[in-house]
């Protein structure tokens, strides 16, 4: 464990806490893409198949459980919570995300570390995570100015993967056998997708006003 990865995991956790706060403090999920949340739940379920078979550390297992439970509870809130589900922008959240799932799965069948169920699903989860934010970015763009908590959620989510890139650089130079090309390349693509969002976010923060 290095500081970059720990910082990445913490910013990832913060992004989920910010989202849960927004949803439960305002009893509203306006501006949040349910599709992105469902993709994240799928990412965690596909990636943590080894939850019960590989014990790496208490921290690792605890965080996996937290990510799975929190992502499923966000999907539950947006779909079934009597008050919250009414504020879901159903008519704006129209990204055809099944294409993202299909594309990631096909890519995982082609490019993976080993052709086993666990490894193919791991690669699938890595590719899917890279593009899972697209419905959310699409929704932010369509809903005009973003309310700042939704923007902060996306900001922390982007920061988490950026920290991971530093983690991979650090591990590459400190552990000669470290080859994590699938996660590295996919993580770079994922962070690049946030680039334009970061640009508008910093402009808004720098000059005040709202991002539109």
């Amino acid at each position: 464990m290095n500081i970059f990865r720990f910082a990445g995991d913490m910013t990832h956790l913060i992004s989920i806490i910010v989202l849960l706060l927004k949803i439960y403090a305002t009893k509203s999920c306006s501006g949040i893409s349910l599709k992105t949340q469902e993709l994240y739940a799928l990412v965690f379920l596909a990636r943590y198949l080894d939850l019960f078979t590989d014990f790496i550390s208490v921290y690792n297992t605890m965080m996996k459980v937290v990510f799975i439970v929190s992502s499923l509870s966000i999907v539950w809130s947006m779909r079934l919570h009597p008050v919250i589900k009414r504020s879901y922008d159903k008519e704006l959240d129209t990204f055809r995300y099944y294409l993202l799932v299909l594309g990631s799965f096909v890519l995982a069948l082609l490019i993976h570390e080993k052709f086993t169920v666990q490894e193919v699903f791991w690669a699938f989860s890595i590719y899917l995570e890279a593009v899972a934010i697209l419905p959310q970015l699409f929704l932010l763009q369509r809903s005009g100015n973003v309310d700042n908590l939704a923007a902060q959620y996306v900001f922390f989510l982007g920061a988490y993967r950026a920290f991971y890139i530093f983690n991979w650089i650090y591990r590459y130079f400190t552990k000669p056998y470290f080859t994590r090309w699938i996660a590295c390349v996919s993580g770079l693509v994922q962070t690049a997708l946030y680039a334009d969002f970061f640009y508008y976010y910093f402009i808004r923060v720098a000059i005040g006003g709202t991002v539109s």
Binding site: R5, R47, D50, D54, I56, N60, F67, E113, K114, A183
Partner: peptide, 10 residues
């Protein structure tokens, strides 16, 4: 690292 490339990252 061991031959089996287990995933220690989240």
């Amino acid at each position: 690292s061991s031959s089996v490339q287990y995933h220690d990252e989240l």
